[in-house]
Amino acid sequence: MKRSECIKALYEELEDCLVVTIMGACAQELYDLGHRENFFYLQHAMGLASSIGLGLALNRPHDRVVVLDGDGSVLMNLGTLTTLARYRPANLIHIIFDNGSLLSTGGFASHTTSGITDLAAIARGAGVPNVALTTTAYEFMEASADAFERNELSVIVAKVEATGPDHFGMDLKLPENAFRFERYIKEKN
């Protein structure tokens, strides 16, 4: 399964959500489907997308918050899974695309490549109440539908191929993205 297919399958569902993505391929693939004001692309600060999602989810309890994360980023901030589990925001869906690769920075193997490190097991061990490990598009869609339906913190680990877009770039300056995202939320009230 490809990450771009997963993001495409989610795209309509994301229309009313507050969405935070990690850097690089993941951000680009969402952007290329069409930017929306409710998308925030964290183009650096690896590991903190889920923390931003937590801050949003706790303060916007009536909005669905979706974090599109990656194995490399989560590995840089494993503690985040324990903090998510402790505060358990019911409106947060944390999707971790696990391609076993630091794809956006040269394609070097991440710790999950060999299969020794199991991010879903780590999430479960952290105490996240709903964790799904998906390896096919069908499983991913099913796990996503379940997560959007339930009113409880969910983590979905999606095993995807280490492929990304052939281009990078957005017509959106980084602070501009932050300012517009903040304004979108303010005007959503």
């Binding site: 903190l48 801050g55 989810a57």
Partner: peptide, 8 residues
């Protein structure tokens, strides 16, 4: 990150 989310 949490502070940034709260700020947004």
């Amino acid at each position: 990150g949490i502070a940034a989310g709260a700020h947004f």
